[in-house]
Design a protein around this nucleic acid. Structure first.
Lengths: 344, 344
DNA sequence: GGACGGTACTGGACCGGTTCAGTACTGTAA
DNA sequence: TTACAGTACTGAACCGGTCCAGTACCGTCC
């Protein structure tokens, strides 16, 4: 049991280590008869290549890295990552690649992790999530010559390969949905503006509401349920009350719905709510939440595929994965006539 | 840049490779003067040990493995894992250990993964989650002689080292809380009974309700929001309506609350709801949910520590991490007089 | 002055693969 | 018959560390 090496296979098959290596890797240099014999012996001995030895000689780790710069506590509240990691894994397993996952508290430590991984040759490539505006990780990865896929908009990736979903177009769809229902005053409860995708949606939201002649308002939060609820209360109790609120993630939308109920209001009668991401959370509320929906698992799969393509020499061109689609549910409705006039 | 090996350090410091190795690893065999000189050169050259080479010679991978046998989609709905992984990471980083995370669809593939990891010497130890009754992974890991920590009750771990939270005691606290409020008819919306911790809580629930003379009922689900809501509707529309419902996770409890509202009922007036795990979800509903709360991040930390201890030769004794604590919020209340008699 | 012990260091084997240069043998064409 | 090409294989170097056996040199004690 254990400790089966190619040396042992070589002895049993009566050939040299080199021949065994050729046979096992499907390379030319051995006859079909020998190859079959070696394969048979390897099979009988339950031989599996030793990863460390492979890594050392081929100078590849067959591992991709993913660093999440968030506190462990806020991570658990975000349904995004787990689904995304699941998608990555599906593709990695097919090629016997592994995922090295690291959770660090700050971006500085994330940078340090990349430096270390590069020096150790610990990973063959990395996946960059949670892009910031002018993200310091991009120049670093470029300097380290580390293959990387940016999960985010090409405008944030600064020439690195990226896979993105078209938030700008999706925002257009969302705002038009609200406008077509008759809403004229819309609030957006957004994440922190230093996040790249928040910034992009901010821009798109401002442009689309202006184009359609709607009164618009943006409140920034930290993505948490608590701040989502607080922001909701704030916009609904201010002078000019919006009749629709658009959230940057699911958790804040669900929390927002509770805040609405807490104020004695109802959705969609008094206020239409629209979430972003569309996890299971959106379907367990009452009313269920209208959301901009995208397939996070598929997104992860596509990102992993692109990283493999990049390693095989593909150009680092941006790839559009999808545009989030509007999933209309019961939290959408036309504005109620009395609510439209605003409260005292 | 890159390619800094101990050979180069040896040349620059004017000593042999062996001496460099001793100096860098803090081992005896070199004078303090030489050690300082070697350390200085290594520092200047930004030397970092090559992982593959280390692994090959010390026959350790400095990696722990975690396999999650769930579909990627259901994973993203469970806040537990991300927080747990975050906790593991905190401890692993301190020792420069890595986490190999694998997501597979079935337990059979999980077993295959362990076999492969053992043969490849891919991981130094594994962490076992989602224990089942008569779990086939336990005899396999024992046969593979793979160091492992079971995340779950000693009664499920069958002699393997485990870290657990006392669900039985927690269930007592939960049921007594409901009894002390005056509830006499309680339902439990549970996960699948083949899950070890569900089974344990089922037993405890049955025993505690009987001890206190309460009418009890258990409905099993798949842990999803949809089934949690359906189960809630079922128990509330059956002949003898319970006045309190105890859920096996947060998602089902939140979904249950929506189902309660959908039936035109109110919590806590018509029905008291009690969740389990206490993630952010419990605080964003209206009313906020009473829950059995435990520190999942800390749990992950403790598990990682135990695995290190095990590798250092500690006995595989069970370790109690904590007993979930009752976090009382607005979804708890005494039963309403009319509701108590049941509906037609 | 010789035996002894300890310290500081060297050289090389080793981990388990990959890969390259070289060799022996066979078959074919000039 | 010889030259040449191609196939099948061997032996050894190599990746970058660890670690053991051996050695040179020092001071100490009898």
């Amino acid at each position: 049991m254990g400790r089966v090496t190619i040396k042992e296979i070589a002895q049993r098959a009566g050939v040299s280590k080199g021949a065994v290596s050729y046979a096992l890797n499907g390379q030319p240099g051995v006859s079909e008869a020998t190859r079959a014999r070696v394969l048979k012996v390897a099979e009988e001995l339950h031989w599996v290549p030793n990863r460390a030895a492979r890594m050392l000689s081929v100078a590849r780790s067959e591992t991709f890295g993913l660093v999440l710069a968030r506190s462990a506590r806020t991570l658990s509240e975000e349904p995004f990552y787990m689904g995304f990691v699941g998608g990555l894994e599906t593709v990695l397993s097919r090629r016997s690649y592994a995922l090295a996952l690291k959770v660090v508290p700050t971006i500085d430590e994330e940078l340090a992790t990349y430096r270390k991984w590069a020096a150790e040759k610990r990973v063959d490539g990395v996946i960059l999530v949670d892009l910031r505006v002018d993200d310091p990780r991009i120049p670093l990865l470029r300097a380290l010559e580390m293959p990387a896929i940016v999960v985010g908009d090409p405008s944030l990736a600064d020439g690195l390969a990226c896979v993105w979903t078209n938030s700008t177009a999706a925002m257009g769809v969302a705002v038009e949905h609200l406008a077509s229902l008759g809403h004229t005053r819309i609030a957006r409860v957004a994440g922190p503006p230093e996040h790249g995708h928040v910034w992009i949606r901010d821009q798109a939201f401002a442009r689309d509401t202006e184009r359609l002649g709607l009164a618009a308002e943006i409140v920034h939060t930290d993505f948490s349920g608590d701040e989502g609820a607080a922001a909701t209360r704030r916009v609904l109790t201010a002078g000019a009350r919006p009749t629709a609120i658009l959230y940057d993630n699911d958790l804040m939308a669900v929390a927002g719905l509770s805040a609405v109920n807490g104020l004695g209001l109802r959705s969609p009668d008094d206020v239409t709510l629209l979430a972003w991401d569309d996890s299971a959370l959106c379907r367990i509320t009452q009313p269920r939440l209208t959301a901009m929906s995208h397939d996070i698992v598929g997104y992860g799969e596509r990102v992993a595929e692109r990283l493999f393509e990049l390693l095989e020499g593909a150009e680092p061109t941006p790839h559009l994965y999808s545009t989030p689609e509007l999933q209309i549910r019961e939290s959408s409705g036309p504005p109620h006539s009395t609510a439209q006039t605003g409260s005292p």
